[in-house]
Design a protein around this nucleic acid. Structure first.
Lengths: 141, 141
DNA sequence: CTACGTGCAAACCATTTGCGACACC
DNA sequence: GGTGTCGCAAATGGTTTGCACGTAG
């Protein structure tokens, strides 16, 4: 699951100091189910380091994003949804409670743009979001 | 482009009063290039109705969303990105400047989940987001 | 005339920033 | 020992809310 040695190595590779706070934040991120937002992370981290500040959590999340240790679920502005799964994959989103589930790349067919993208746009990849209702929200309706 | 009569009809159908503010907001939304956030809309509306308040714009955007006159680009929390194109379609997102372009459904292949979604999840549809760099951001790099 | 819509101002929440103190390397 | 990191607290930015007044139906 969480491998300190590997985390150390990755930090060193990125030129980042290996602080206790960072280890805990990363560990919490890895162990978090779903695709937590920074606030949730902050809450969980605070259980282990009560004195930690929100600023530190936000700063380190940004640092991890820059270092490629973390991914943002979408690129749109707003509340971040995070995941340590850096491998390309897709998402299944509940339109009711906005829960997010992972869908492996090999579970869906390859997609290709039939036409050329607009003048000069360079396409690097894509993500698919499937929408629907999770079991809980289905019952509630 | 903007058809007052149709807007009237849609408002009546949804049981909404036809106010001047609403007409201007909707018109601005329709004429807006890209996928504007509420703030941008607010700015543009304010040029025509300087006395309008941000609250009114936000309230009406919510109203339009409920009435199905408007779509949110993503379901994730945070800053809204809006579009009046209610037809299903996909997006091309610039990872540099976060600009969003539309991609018509018939420009990409149909996608199917190869495996069953998690226990009891009911899938209604999907959206594809292509990522890349727009011409402007390509130059800048 | 009455319910719905508007403007205003304050509140809210997530996130960012600046800075002095502290810890990793 | 010096740069990078932390904690704190204040600032910011987007969005929401409550309420008194105004207007569409």
């Amino acid at each position: 699951m969480f491998d300190v040695t590997e985390f150390q190595a990755r930090c060193r590779a990125a030129g980042l100091a290996l602080t206790h706070q960072r280890q805990v934040i990363y560990q919490v991120l890895m162990q978090a189910r779903g695709h937590p937002c920074p606030e949730v992370i902050y809450e969980k981290v605070r259980k282990r380091i009560p004195s930690i500040s929100a600023g530190t959590v936000y700063k380190n999340i940004k640092t991890f994003l820059n270092a490629g240790l973390l991914c943002e679920v979408t690129l749109h502005h707003g509340t971040m949804r995070l995941e340590t799964n850096v491998q390309p994959h897709h998402h299944l989103v509940c339109t009711g409670c906005r829960a997010i589930f992972d869908v492996d790349s090999n579970e869906v067919d390859e997609v290709q743009l039939r036409r050329k993208p607009p003048k000069g746009f360079l396409v690097n990849g894509y993500k698919i979001e499937f929408y629907g209702l999770c079991p809980g929200c289905r019952k509630r309706q």
